[in-house]
Design a protein around this nucleic acid. Structure first.
Length: 262
DNA sequence: ATTGTGGCCTGCCCGC
DNA sequence: TGCGGGCAGGCCACAA
């Protein structure tokens, strides 16, 4: 599903659409608009203007229009982006293997005849004019160790489990369920932990976060982690062969190794 | 204020 | 073979 690595790929593809005047904008599915964003407002705001920048903060893709508002795209779990009829990513995990017209939720057409389309079977994504970017924490692809220290800080013993803090988009923007499990597994950190991390453990978390994102980006996406194929009943730790534990942590299905994650 | 839970959305897989 | 329940997870509303 689209986590930060996939959305970064979408951003790169969206850059190919910069400078091309938008002819029209449609919410094929009216419910796909969020925060009062309607097809009419979208069309009125963008008509005739080109996008001048494609930015990303966490999983939020931001398209700045020339002298106009920014369009925010969220992809949920199954959202895909297609430019001029070509998908930015061929096949998404947890998403149907085919493309169907009825799953196209939003379309931006360009004066040159091309189009940018959002395809989203499960409709968990959305389009929003002028989204509030300030609600998101530092971006996971560029977060510093100091910033991560702050993000993972613990107030008291009732703090949310480590994994929930890592996935909280206001603390760190961009980490989804699969990446969180992979990062904590590589960092040998127990996702259920509520106690504060030592300075050494934060270093480990930061180092694992960076290494994991780099590696999975090179491999081709957030579903290419070593833990991925063990995410099932009886799955085993690729490192020490112990049977993985799996429980809901922070409301999300979580797999981890009870042997080496502490 | 922070944390936890349920619901949304819909295709797919498993067991009967 | 068909059917239905459960599951997948990003994000938000809402409750505690």
């Amino acid at each position: 599903m689209p986590e930060i690595l996939e959305v970064e790929r979408y951003r790169q593809v969206a850059e190919l659409a910069l400078g091309r005047p938008v002819q029209g904008a449609w919410l094929v599915d009216a419910r796909y608009g969020r925060g009062g964003t309607t097809a009419r407002r979208l069309g009125d705001a963008l008509g005739g203007r080109p996008f001048v920048a494609a930015r990303r903060r966490g999983k939020l893709l931001l398209l700045d229009s020339e002298d106009g508002p920014t369009v925010g795209l969220r992809f949920g779990m199954t959202g895909a982006l297609a430019l001029d009829g070509e998908l930015a990513i061929e096949r998404l995990r947890y998403s149907p293997a085919r493309i169907a017209r009825q799953w196209v939720r939003a379309v931006f057409t360009f004066a040159d005849g091309g189009a940018l389309e959002v395809h989203d079977p499960r409709r968990l994504g959305s389009v929003e004019l002028a989204p509030d970017e300030s609600r998101l924490g530092p971006d996971a692809l560029s977060i510093t160790r100091r910033q991560l220290t702050t993000a993972l800080a613990v107030r008291d013993a009732r703090a949310a489990p480590l994994k929930a803090r890592l996935m909280d988009q206001a603390r760190v923007a961009g980490i989804g369920n699969l990446l969180a499990d992979e990062i904590l597994w590589r960092g040998a950190l127990d996702p259920t932990r509520r106690s504060a991390l030592t300075a050494e453990e934060v270093r480990r978390a930061h180092s694992s976060l960076r290494a994991t994102l780099r590696l999975l980006q090179r491999r081709g996406g957030s579903h290419t982690g070593d833990l991925m194929e063990q995410r099932h009943q009886g799955g085993r730790c690729p490192t020490d062969g112990r049977e993985l534990r799996h429980e809901s942590v922070g409301g999300r299905t979580t797999y981890w190794c009870p042997g080496h994650q502490r």
